[in-house]
Computed example of a mutant assay.
Amino acid sequence: MNNIQKVLQFISNSSDYVSGEKIATEFSLSRTAIWKIVKNLQNMGYPIKSKMHLGYYYEDTNKLNEFIIRKNLPQNLETINFELHDSLKSTNIRAKELSTNTNTTQNTTPTIIISDQQTGGYGRYGRSFTSPSQTGIYMSILLQTDMNTLNPGLLTTATALAITRTIERVLGVSPQIKWVNDVLVDKKKVVGILTEAVSDIESGSINQVIVGIGINYLSDISLFPLDIQARIGTLKDIVTTKNISRNFFISQILTDFFHLYSTYQSGEFIAEYKEKSNLLFKNVTITQGQNKKMGFVIDIDNKGRLVLEDGTILNSGEVTKIRL
């Protein structure tokens, strides 16, 4: 970690103004050097306030900051790895690049990739995921696993529930989940989830999993293509009222995600997931590739699969219509 990062971390972790003299003493630098470093950080967009006789204070606003995220994580997550970027084609693509790195594959610690913008974000079936700069949360979680089999659908449902818990607790609203990967607020999609498995070419076993999360956090709907504006929503009004930074919200998502991840394969969370589902006891149309299936939803089983009244069990697909 260079001196710029050390100073940023020190100021970010301080709960009040910290003097330039104290920072200089901490890192054996001159006060002039600290002043120059802080100016550099301010020019990079970090919201550091300066006040005569008091020093420097980090006012957590909209700038992504690994140290602010870490500060709000529980102790059991303090060792996870982070990569923060101003722009990426896709955080999932970056996670796939890391998955082939020898150092990454030998390290069992999860890696979190976050970008302020995605230029080629994508969702299920390769659909484009609009990712405007400085407004959304675009994050991928790269996980190591020694499992020979994996239920991506169950992991996706667990992730959806974790995010609804975060939205409920932090923002005070009650989302619904549209099976299998969308979180809705006021019946409009605010969160998309894409789980991808990375398999070993030689053995064919799944040794890594990527959970991609996209959230319209402070997003303005006008920034999205016209053909989807009627279907998507944003947390902007709620977030602005509550004044919750992206950094804090990210830390809460990770807290809820890893709490569920440790036991998600048991399916114990499904009862709570069903309480938040918007599909139970409704007629739906599910699309799987070129095929369509219509039916009445009677259950979501402990593997996260959709159960229809006629006995059909679906572990994947897209719900394209919902009727009472």
Rank of each mutant, 00 (worst) to 15 (best):
Ala33Ile: 14
Asn2Ile: 15
Val239Lys: 07
Thr104His: 00
Val38Asp: 03
Leu41His: 07
Leu218Ala: 00
Ser15Asn: 14
Glu272Ile: 09
Phe129Lys: 05
Lys49Asp: 11
Phe269Arg: 00
Asn148Arg: 12
Ile23Lys: 09
Ala230Ile: 01
Leu150Met: 13
Asn151Gln: 05
Ile286Phe: 05
Ile93Asn: 12
Leu29Glu: 15
Tyr138Thr: 00
Ile201Gln: 15
Asn315Met: 11
Thr320Ile: 12
Gly192Trp: 03
Ser219Tyr: 06
Glu97Ala: 05
Arg31Tyr: 13
Glu26Leu: 03
Ile213Arg: 00
Asn181Asp: 08
Thr135Pro: 00
Gly317Val: 03
Ser50Arg: 15
Lys51Leu: 15
Pro175Trp: 10
Lys96Gly: 04
Asn81Thr: 13
Gly126Lys: 08
Lys189Pro: 02
Thr111Gln: 02
Ile215Trp: 04
Phe224Ile: 07
Lys39Glu: 15
Trp35Asn: 14
Thr159Cys: 10
Tyr217Val: 06
Gly289Cys: 06
Asn151Ala: 07
Leu226Glu: 14
Ser199Thr: 13
Ser203Asn: 09
Phe224Ser: 01
Thr159Asn: 06
Thr166Lys: 04
Ser14Gln: 08
Leu8Met: 04
Lys292Pro: 01
Ile322Asp: 08
Lys242Met: 12
Gln118Val: 01
Asn43Ile: 09
Ser266Glu: 10
Lys36His: 13
Thr166Asp: 04
Arg231Gly: 09
Gly317Met: 01
Ser266Val: 01
Leu226Gly: 04
Thr263Cys: 07
Glu168Trp: 00
Lys282Cys: 02
Lys6Gln: 10
Asp116Gln: 09
Asn247Leu: 03
Lys321Gln: 13
Lys321Glu: 13
Glu275Ser: 07
Ser90Asp: 04
Glu78Ala: 15
Leu171Ile: 03
Gln176Met: 06
Gly304Thr: 00
Asn315Asp: 15
Leu306Asn: 07
Trp179Cys: 02
Leu77Arg: 11
Ile113Val: 15
Ile286Trp: 08
Ile177Ser: 05
Thr109Trp: 02
Ala162Met: 05
Lys49Ala: 10
Phe257Asp: 00
Arg169Glu: 14
Lys49Phe: 03
Gly55Gln: 05
Asp299His: 09
His85Gln: 07
Ser87Ala: 00
Ser199Arg: 12
Thr156Ser: 10
Ser115Arg: 07
Thr255Tyr: 02
Asn151Cys: 11
Asn43His: 11
Met139Lys: 04
Ala160Phe: 08
Asp310Glu: 11
Tyr57Ala: 02
Arg323Asn: 10
Lys292Asn: 14
Thr145Leu: 11
Lys22Asp: 11
Ser222Ile: 05
Leu150Asn: 09
Arg127Tyr: 06
Lys63Gly: 07
Val319Asp: 02
His85Phe: 15
Ile250Ser: 00
Val211Asp: 07
Tyr217Lys: 06
Leu142Ile: 04
Gly20Cys: 03
Tyr125Cys: 07
Gly172Asp: 03
Asn76Tyr: 15
Tyr125Asp: 12
Tyr264Ala: 04
Ile11Gly: 01
Ser251Thr: 04
Ser90Gln: 01
Pro110Lys: 00
Leu88Tyr: 09
Leu324Asp: 15
Ile113Thr: 06
Ser205Phe: 14
Ser133Tyr: 05
Thr108Pro: 00
Ser219Cys: 13
